[in-house]
Design a protein around this nucleic acid. Structure first.
Lengths: 348, 348
DNA sequence: GTGAAAGCGCTAACAT
DNA sequence: ATGTTAGCGCTTTCAC
């Protein structure tokens, strides 16, 4: 109203004028470049503060060819459902929330922005690839829900700055951060064993899910090592409903079951429902271990003993690796593996 | 390898050369400006396709003073906990996921980007305000978790392009999209009434939560209209644990309860646990209605009858309103209210 | 209806 | 160590 003062913000030139130096010097100070006289540096800093200067991102990007933005990509194969609910479900998954929070935390201390992206069809996948190539996005953090993901192969083939959160599959030519799912399965087995359970079953994850097979393998290996060879395994679909169905199936084949490992908490929750319907006491009659330490674990009754991945730390490591990759394209592809931990609650 | 062809992408000038026109004309065509000869238009379009041209966002932003990015802001008062888990929890909340998915859907058809932002302290709040003022972000979609939120008042006072998802409180001078929580409470009451329940209780939300009070008011009003005046109300904290405690309290004061309304699904889930422990059959002995239609509703046993807000549609409307606000700063402040619906499942 | 020209605000050679 | 200069790729008056 009446004053078009500073419409659009203070520019670097204005700061330079106030400080009585050249724009280049201001730029150097602002960007923390060395080789600037400490005295001048002070003067410029004051001028910056006095004017309230803040760099124009677009202008800076134009010349540096860096957007200052990195993408958090949720990759959906879009094979099944492919409607809104599916995307909502991923975005609303505690798993995703922990990753986003972990990434954001480190990103903002680096002055970088996080763009949320859904890559669920060829068009959006191509656009992401293009934007990455043009540095419209500096790099991408990819969270993929299953192993045979078209986005991953596409990204890998173009050699773009991308870090994947996923199974430690060496197959993908992408820098990857993963949890040691096998060790996680082992942890679950050890807990059941320590509770004296040897008539155990497992509700495994779907074959194409991230690391599901590893969890089961680790579990079975540790059981076998203690002489427990006869383990019933049924495959679920990572939902409460499939957990229920699988539990019923397991119980039908082996009514004397005294221990259960479910490859995620949701299926464990389903199992809990069925066990209760069968009047089986948890953990006395059947001990149950889940995986993920999701909200379902704390909200179930009894509360769920489960395996937890350090997702926030993993996300932070993803950012670190990505920043390195952006900084130096020649950084070799690496896989970092994190160890899960057992969270003991009431169910086992 | 060996070819630095098109390093950094095709520029508008290159397209112009290929098409045999001036850069200005290409710009006009690309931006859909009228007053361009249809014939030339075709030529330019071909050239664009042939070269694989895609506009440089930074350059465009620099001159248009629009970033093409809108922020999805999660505002946390940071009063309590204030550690990572808190943010993770919000981001991993299905509520948030549905909003993000709804917004993203409309945004990408408009060629806009979504930046994820956490505003949990004065510094980040100020930065957001500044970025909005400088058009480093074109506008913000704000999801606030409680009513007395410092971010909202700050944003409102600066008259920035912001749309709030929140209670229909007229107090805030912000364009707002809200659900009719009172109507939602009414829906719950009507359902309980239709099941013949008149000895009812409610587990209300915390006093500072978005719309919690309205839900209770709507419920009580509808009950009263049917002559049910004596309703026990206890206040919970929107968690399973507080739901359990509240349910116990309710049952202690009124052992003959035959209907319950919980202001969110999590508390309803907690109530379910307690009712089961008391060997009370659901819904025969006690009918339960929740609120939100979150994952907890479908994963609980029995499945939860609940009130659903059309969050995806609400998010889309937020985007529409925000775009309007960005386009014309003088757009008057408005509040749009959406009607919730009842989702009938097994618990009532 | 189309082209020429002037920047948007910044950084990075290059010169000093 | 600092200043001068030349753009980055685009849109947009302004002439024609």
């Amino acid at each position: 109203v009446g004053g078009e003062v500073r419409r659009g913000g203070v520019t670097l030139d204005q700061v330079a004028r106030v400080a009585g130096v050249s724009p280049a010097t201001v730029s150097r100070v602002v960007n923390g470049t060395r080789n600037v006289d400490p005295a001048l540096q002070q003067i410029v800093m004051s001028a910056v503060k006095a004017t309230g200067y803040v760099p124009n991102r677009a202008a800076r990007s134009l010349v540096t060819r860096r957007s200052g933005t990195i993408a958090l990509v949720v990759s959906a194969a879009s094979a099944d459902g492919f409607d809104d609910p599916f995307i909502s479900r991923i975005l609303g998954d505690p798993f995703f929330g922990r990753v986003a929070a972990g990434a954001l935390d480190l990103l903002r201390t680096n002055g970088l922005r996080l763009e949320l992206l859904i890559a669920d069809d060829p068009a959006t996948r191509n656009e992401l690839t293009r934007r990455l190539a043009l540095r419209d996005i500096d790099g991408a953090l990819v969270v993929s829900m299953n192993t045979r993901d078209p986005l991953c192969v596409q990204l890998a083939s173009h050699h773009l700055p991308v870090v994947l959160l996923g199974p430690a599959a060496k197959s993908v030519g992408l820098t990857t951060v993963a949890a040691d799912n096998r060790a996680g399965g082992s942890l679950a087995a050890a807990q059941l064993l320590s509770r004296g359970r040897r008539r155990v079953g497992v509700i495994a994850g779907p074959s194409d899910a991230r690391g599901a097979a590893e969890r089961t393998k680790g579990f079975l290996a540790t059981m076998a090592r203690q002489g427990v060879e006869d383990v019933a395994v049924v495959i679920g679909g990572y939902t409460v409903q499939t957990g229920e169905a699988s539990m019923r199936e397991l119980l039908a084949g082996r009514p004397d079951l005294d221990g259960l490992f479910a490859a995620n908490d949701l299926m464990a929750q389903g199992a809990l429902h069925v066990l209760r319907d069968h009047d089986l006491h948890i953990p006395d009659q059947v001990a149950v271990v889940g995986f993920d330490d999701s909200r379902a674990a704390t909200d179930a009754r009894p509360t769920l003993t489960t395996v937890r991945q350090p997702l926030e730390q993993m996300a932070a490591e993803m950012v670190r690796l990505l920043l390195q990759l952006i900084d130096d394209e020649a950084t070799p592809i690496r896989t970092t593996v994190f160890q899960p931990t057992l969270v003991v609650r009431a169910s086992a």
